[in-house]
Design a protein around this nucleic acid. Structure first.
Lengths: 189, 189
DNA sequence: TCTAAGATATAACAGTGTTATATGGCAAAC
DNA sequence: GTTTGCCATATAACACTGTTATATCTTAGA
């Protein structure tokens, strides 16, 4: 196996096991069975490792929202996309925290990483925008996407931080989806 | 001046100047003109410093939403409370990032800090709940507050992370307030 | 076979939070 | 007034972090 992928696999394993806490350069190297130097020759140090995981995270988000074929989307399909987003935030907490800056205060995503974020948002613009009337403008498409993003991200983030949503009997994903549906209904009238 | 407040002032200064980045135990001590040990005798280490700033942050949020007297709130007053929240998120980015875990991945708020968060949320429950009909239940009060919190927090957080909102001509606070108003109108009908 | 270049390893550096040990000063007890 | 004990402060060390200068080893090409 290639050294680069050996390092990346080790980093992914550690990240899934313990989030950003145990993700040190030395721990990754040890898990990969080699010295720390590979992280600086094959990646750009820890920044490069975090970039790879950041891109992984936003690609998860994009793919989870990718439930609509070409053409116009139904309301159920928009809700399905949002539910995909919510599930990623719930089931991949480590990745989600990383892409919103909670893993390493010093980390700044590279250009390539930012384009992965842009790609995920574009997916939401297409899905939500295709639900709007054909007469709607691209500005309106971006606006509705930003609204939905704020709603679902707000709920995911709060679910990670507020104890009131840690109770498993509290279905915060349904709550978020309800707000999304209310918003969709309101802007269509 | 008391040693404890000397340390706290130094920490606040450094935090406002450079966020969590330059907020090291040694930097705080140096600014306060004493050794590092005071942070461990007067506080519980860096955790205690972050707790103090965390509480400061959530108190800012609570006070910013405290624009409604006793009795029922008008829609304008609810919107005013939300605008207060949004402004805190915009103008006190360091504090806001701290209370949502972006400053130090290892930091976990203490019980006292969590009660400051609860206090802020309770304020929103009272404000938003008092806008609902008198027949509404306390569960509905908490629900509408959670909805509004997700919307405004979602927008604040996105404004901190997505470049599309960094353009000063993009009035993301107005966008957030629009979503809040749409939601309020919808749940009242 | 020799050489040059690339990959890998080791060790050090500067920084972090934390703590064991040592010192200082000051108030209470005799 | 001297001594004792306690509390605040200081110093230095420990274990960790990301990073890099130096050294070694491997391997492909001449």
């Amino acid at each position: 196996m290639d050294s680069r992928t050996k390092i990346l696999n080790a980093a992914s394993e550690l990240f899934l096991e313990g989030g950003g806490a145990g993700l040190s350069v030395r721990a990754i190297s040890k898990r990969a069975g080699m010295s720390t130097i590979g992280i600086y020759s094959h990646f750009q140090g820890k920044q490069g490792i975090l970039d790879a995981l950041y891109i992984e995270g936003f690609n998860m988000v994009r793919d989870a929202m990718d439930v609509v074929a070409e053409g116009k989307a139904s309301k159920a399909q928009v809700l399905e996309s949002c539910m995909g987003y919510l599930k990623v935030g719930e089931q991949n907490e480590a990745h989600y925290r990383l892409i919103f800056g909670e893993t390493d205060a010093g980390y700044e995503p590279s250009e390539e990483a930012i384009s992965a974020r842009t790609s995920a948002f574009s997916k939401l613009v297409r899905v939500a925008g295709s639900y709007l009337p054909d007469t709607s403008t691209s500005i309106e498409h971006r606006q509705i996407a930003l609204d939905l993003w704020a709603i679902v991200h707000g709920y995911v983030s709060i679910s990670h931080h507020a104890s009131l949503t840690h109770d498993p009997s509290v279905d915060w994903k349904a709550m978020a989806l309800r707000v999304v549906e209310i918003h969709l209904d309101a802007v269509m009238n």
